[in-house]
Design a protein around this nucleic acid. Structure first.
Lengths: 196, 196
DNA sequence: CACCACGAGCTAACAGTGTTAGCCTGGCTC
DNA sequence: GAGCCAGGCTAACACTGTTAGCTCGTGGTG
């Protein structure tokens, strides 16, 4: 990878229009609830409670629950993207086409992805599940978050396939859909091997 | 594969305890709503409306909305499983370890999976997303539905990895998460190739 | 200084949700 | 015929997101 490409991969994530301090507090409160008790625990009243105000007052600052969700989704994508970009940056020289290097990069990316998704289950699910309302997301954020897959595979098609496989593993593991006691580590390893 | 194993792969799906006619009508009504307007259109009142009764009357037949959902999930898994089992049955002799045959089987299975998931979006999402409450599902149904992956890959670990990759592609495509205009077909093909 | 505007809180209310309690009625059985 | 019970009903509760309209304090302006 060239020097400029390396810098580009470290680029800051696309930011949306800046939020007021109060909006940031609201999103932060929702996030605490999300991480502690899951999305279903987030209601306009519970969020308002955490701030010591009543639910209707929230509407002085945000348009509705959908906007709150969109803000959390954007945060989730930014954090996921930051983790993945950090991983490919750490991997050092990326334009090596040596097969062993490539396999190591794929393994590292998948490891980072898995750790991040499992450590931030509710945020990950929120950010990656269900239809994406692109119009309420900062421009280019989604593409930025997925770019590490492109950087590691060197090909947009393989990048999408690897991303989908990785996402599938993450959601199934998060949701406990693998049969109890099955060696999930090995399924991750098999995926890395298949795409290396 | 032995003859008995081939028969086993055609086995009928595990059935739960038989439902009364009225319960079947309730589930059918919910299913129509699900397919026409998505899960969020299903409320106890809308389901009851379709049957010409009031919502509380539903509770004479089913324990609650969760049980309704569980019945739909079981239906979804049975139908998905039937499609996949049909695919591997059609593929004929399955114990061939010829690489080309294997690749063709993987391609066929992924094609069937994709068609089924896209043609039954709401049911697919319902059956495969979110935590699975195994205790309310017929015993062995989940394992039965996933067995075609095992039959095609010949290995439980690779089966899980392939299943996860396939699921990832399906949900991302269903949810429109691939960048607009991107060649999703090729991502499916790349996945089949990676696991062949 | 007086005034006014506006930001940001409040209460009351509405329509919708899942669910429970309790009532009623028609048909089957003894 | 008497009684039971399956399967409907209404009323109600506690929740949800959201709107309308009021109030109060603060900052800027004539």
């Amino acid at each position: 990878m060239t020097d400029s490409a390396a810098r580009a991969s470290r680029d800051e994530p696309p930011q949306g229009p800046p939020a007021t301090a109060r909006v940031q507090q609201i999103v932060a409160a929702a996030r605490v609830l999300l991480e502690e008790h899951g999305w279903e625990a987030i209601s306009m009243r519970t969020v308002a409670d955490r701030l010591g105000i009543r639910a209707p007052s929230l509407y002085k600052h945000i348009a509705g629950k959908e906007e709150l969700q969109a803000a959390l989704v954007a945060d989730g994508l930014r954090e996921m993207g930051a983790a993945l970009h950090g991983c490919v940056a750490d991997a050092g020289v990326l334009d090596s086409s040596d097969a062993a290097d490539r396999a190591a990069r794929v393994r590292a990316l998948l490891g980072t992805y898995r750790r991040h998704a499992l450590a931030n289950g509710a945020m990950y699910r929120l950010a990656t599940s269900g239809p994406l309302r692109r119009e309420v997301l900062p421009d280019g954020l989604e593409e930025w978050a997925g770019r590490p897959f492109w950087l590691v595979t060197g090909d947009p098609i393989r990048a999408q396939a690897l991303w989908a496989a990785t996402h599938g593993l993450a959601v199934l593991e998060l949701d406990g859909r693998f049969p109890p006691g099955s060696p999930v580590d090995k399924a991750w390893a098999a995926t890395a091997w298949a795409f290396a």
